[in-house]
C-alpha cells in the first residue's frame, strides 16, 4: 500500500491540481480568475511530463564525462517549449479580458451574458415592430 502510494503520489497530486484548475475555469465567473485557473491546469500538465521523465537515482541530463544515469531529457525540451507558449496564450487571454472590460465595463461572466441577452431581446423587439409596421 505504501509502495503504491509512493509510486503514484506525484501523478495523484497532478490529477488533483488539474481538477482544481478545471474547477476554477468552470465555476468562477471572473475572467482573470479563469485565466489563473488555466495556468494552474497547465502547470499540472508540466508536472506530469517532468514526473514521467524522472529516473530514480538519475541526475540532471548534463554530460560530465562519467557514465551516469540521466533523467529523460525529451520531456524537459517539450515542456520548455510549452512554458513559453503558455505565457504567450496567457498574455493574449489577459489582453482579451482588458478589451472586454473596455467594451462592457465588467469582467464577470454572468453580467456579460445578461448584457448580451438584453441586446438580443431589444433587437428582436425592434425587428418585430418593424415587421408589423
Amino acid at each position: 500500500m505504501l509502495e503504491l502510494f509512493l509510486d503514484k503520489y506525484n501523478y495523484w497530486i497532478v490529477v488533483v491540481l488539474m481538477m482544481i484548475g478545471l474547477y476554477i475555469v468552470i465555476a468562477r465567473g471572473n475572467l482573470v480568475k479563469k485565466i489563473v485557473g488555466l495556468n494552474v491546469f497547465q502547470t499540472s500538465v508540466f508536472m506530469f511530463y517532468i514526473s514521467l521523465g524522472k529516473a530514480e537515482g538519475g541526475t540532471a541530463p548534463i554530460l560530465t564525462g562519467k557514465p551516469e544515469l540521466f533523467s529523460n531529457p525529451l520531456p524537459h525540451v517539450l515542456i520548455l517549449t510549452a512554458i513559453v507558449v503558455g505565457i504567450a496564450t496567457t498574455a493574449l487571454g489577459l489582453a482579451l479580458v482588458v478589451r472586454i472590460r473596455e467594451s462592457y465595463d465588467t469582467i464577470e461572466e454572468d453580467e456579460l451574458e445578461g448584457m448580451d441577452n438584453a441586446v438580443v431581446t431589444t433587437e428582436r423587439a425592434r425587428l418585430g415592430t418593424g415587421d408589423a409596421a
Binding site: 524522472k54 538519475g58 541526475t59 540532471a60 548534463i62 524537459h76 515542456i79 512554458i83 513559453v84 503558455g86
Partner: peptide, 13 residues
C-alpha cells in the same frame, strides 16, 4: 525532478 532548465524557465516566466 532533475529538470533544471525547466525550473529556470518556470521561475523566470
Amino acid at each position: 525532478l532533475d529538470a533544471v532548465d525547466v525550473a529556470f524557465t518556470e521561475a523566470a516566466v
